[in-house]
Design a protein around this nucleic acid. Structure first.
Lengths: 216, 216
DNA sequence: GGCCTCCCCCTACGAAAGTCGGGGGTGCAG
DNA sequence: CTGCACCCCCGACTTTCGTAGGGGGAGGCC
């Protein structure tokens, strides 16, 4: 049984959604709120699995509400709903921690499907939102990533440890302290790392490491 | 009219997909290929709007085929299809330039919908793929971005120029050359940048700048 | 054993980076 | 016009980086 909460300032929308959700045997609407603040209160009191949250609301909008909901001890999954303004809200919504992003013109059956999917750990994006996210993915420089990853492969374990700290902006002396070696040794490691990554200096090495998604 | 191409090494799957697509009045199957190499040939000869591409194929797999197709003069949109191995292929597929990523167990109606959506410039992701992409989005450090951006606001124009080059891994001497100033001046700028960004050294400054999406 | 290879650690020295203090220009409020 | 607040620029000094070169240990292979 999926415990759902509906958050929307429009009473009619709430009614419609509640009707829709309760038509599904596996979903139970356990709470409704007309603004974000109330939603957070309700979520702390009841156990909520999935929250359907409108973006535009008084007092606290859906973005802020999503962030607050996701910060709770047992955070509910969140699907944000909006009428039109896709461009503005997709990234904010995802950054806040939403697992779904739909437009209100989405077919009722799709909304039900989204609730189920999100409850089970998947995600559901409106096609236009998916488009934006993919564009962002390309922007973030993943062409370089693949090339950089290969170079990271043939680093020794010790060199990886050094690179991990280096790519967090630590100095050689700090790295030496953390890894229990002399600074001069760190320098030698860094020097080999630079050769391996074809970087001219530590700044480029740090950037390459990050591009490759290297965390340590 | 959407001109579609089907690429799959399994003749039965091709037959099924062709049947499905031709059931839609707005879609026309103009080409079929059993491997990536042949698909690229066909795409250069015919104008293709949307290609449905299987991932696992002999001679040239779907990933490579996608990259080649997207590199053509009038690249078709690409939807990649796979049976199971989601984890492996999502990122590779998107990096290659796919606009859609579906599993073969997807409902036929969903596949048709995907073709329409992708043809019109949107994207279609399998829920599990959407999940992965969203996770990646969070990984990429968008929480820190907001905080860093504020600090970038109160940099002077000249400092921004210096930071732009600095965050590409250039040395002070190189920056001085590009901006027509003495190295000592660059150092002074960098020093103020470090203070403004609350960074201890240039590596951290470069990373902060990148986190904030600062390009110059 | 002897040999080769790889990894880790180190010293020493020239080359960068970063700090400090200051000159000179502009614009604006008192 | 004087003082103040920026901004851009610079040279001298200290600290940190990066390279070159070498010692020593662990494991594979004859």
């Amino acid at each position: 049984m999926i415990r759902a909460m509906i958050v929307d300032d429009d009473a009619l929308v709430r009614l419609g959604l509640a009707d829709l959700l309760d038509g599904d045997e596996a979903i139970e609407t356990v709470a409704q709120a007309s603004d974000g603040l109330r939603a957070v209160e309700l979520a702390t009191a009841h156990r909520i699995d999935v929250a359907l949250v409108d973006v535009r609301m008084p007092r606290m909008d859906g973005i802020a509400a999503t962030a607050r909901l996701r910060a709770l001890p047992h955070p509910p999954r969140v699907i944000t709903l909006t009428t039109f303004d896709l461009d503005e809200y997709v990234y904010d919504s995802l950054t806040a921690g939403a697992d779904g992003f739909l437009l209100k013109d989405t077919a009722p059956s799709e909304i039900l499907r989204a609730v189920h999917l999100v409850a089970s750990g998947s995600a559901m994006l409106h096609p236009a939102a998916a488009r934006r996210l993919i564009d962002r993915y390309h922007q973030a420089g993943h062409s370089r990533a693949a090339a950089a990853r290969k170079k990271l492969e043939n680093l020794t374990p010790r060199e990886r440890e050094v690179l991990a700290l280096l790519s967090r902006g630590e100095t050689n002396a700090e790295i030496a302290g953390h890894l229990g070696m002399r600074e001069s040794t760190v320098k030698a490691h860094v020097s080999r790392i630079l050769t391996a990554l074809e970087a001219d200096n530590r700044v480029q090495a740090a950037l390459r490491a990050r591009d490759a998604g290297f965390t340590g």
